[in-house]
């Protein structure tokens, strides 16, 4: 087993069960996983294998029924909801398949939202939003509403929003799922560039080609991690499979 202190993320015996009517769905079964800083990981597997649930767990959007989750050596499963909100705000960026932009806010206002929620002063916000718009090539789209933007532009706004607070972990759930091939490629390159700057990147995808680009690939089936492969001799690309 890995040293928890050296890992960015350590999951031990994570369990999650959903009840859909009478039937019981075990989305996660005894998952153990260690992730080091600035890794690039793809999580793959069939629908219902639990890969989105795993991502939501890591993003603190969902709570496990059992097991522990250490983020930067700190047990975050036992934190109060408001402390978890603070962790989400400061350490985690989320990118969704359907973008989840607020339709009535302009691109700039959507990007600004995490700063507003974190209580950053207005002048500082304006400076950082301007910089982000520049970085993502959205300056001339700043005052457009989401429905006036193309799919690729929307996902760029979503990425700018997820990274405006410089999180340690960037979580992307099917980031190219709603985009055409060329735009998807552009978005992936953007995410990889962020990873190259040191941001840990975890991508959930159906797309084999996209998954193959990651340095480490996790395969999930039926709530278990069934394979964990590293292309490159990465320092910490080790993980344990499940043991049922």
């Amino acid at each position: 087993m890995q040293d928890d202190a050296a890992s960015l993320i350590s999951l031990h015996g994570l369990e999650r069960t959903f009840y859909l009517g009478d039937s019981k769905v075990q989305a996660l079964r005894n998952v153990d996983l260690h992730i080091s800083p600035s890794e690039y990981i793809a999580v793959m597997g069939p629908s219902g294998s639990g890969k989105s649930t795993l991502l939501n767990m890591i993003g603190l959007l969902d709570r496990p029924d059992a097991g522990t989750y250490l983020l930067e050596g700190r047990d975050v499963t036992t934190l109060k909801p408001d402390e978890q909100a603070k962790v989400r705000s400061e350490r985690i960026g989320f990118i969704f398949q359907s973008f989840h932009l607020i339709p009535r806010l302009t691109a700039a206002a959507n990007i600004e939202l995490p700063l507003v929620l974190a209580g950053v002063p207005a002048a500082e916000r304006a400076r950082r939003v301007k910089q982000a718009l520049q970085e993502y090539g959205l300056t001339d789209r700043a005052h457009h509403l989401p429905n006036q933007l193309s799919g690729g532009q929307r996902q760029r706004v979503a990425i700018a929003r997820a990274t405006i607070l410089r999180p340690a972990v960037l979580l992307a759930d099917e980031p190219t799922g709603n985009l055409d091939r060329a735009t998807g490629e552009e978005v992936v390159r953007l995410l990889e560039a962020l990873n190259a700057q040191g941001m840990t990147l975890i991508v959930v995808t159906h797309d084999q080609a996209l998954g193959a680009r990651a340095r480490r690939q996790l395969r999930m089936e039926d709530g278990r991690i069934v394979s964990d492969a590293s292309d490159v001799g990465d320092v910490s690309a080790a993980a344990t499979g499940s043991s049922g």
Partner: peptide, 14 residues
């Protein structure tokens, strides 16, 4: 859904 998004972006319940 908007409430969920705000929480995902780090908003507290308060």
């Amino acid at each position: 859904a908007e409430i969920g998004l705000l929480k995902a972006l780090g908003a507290t319940a308060d």
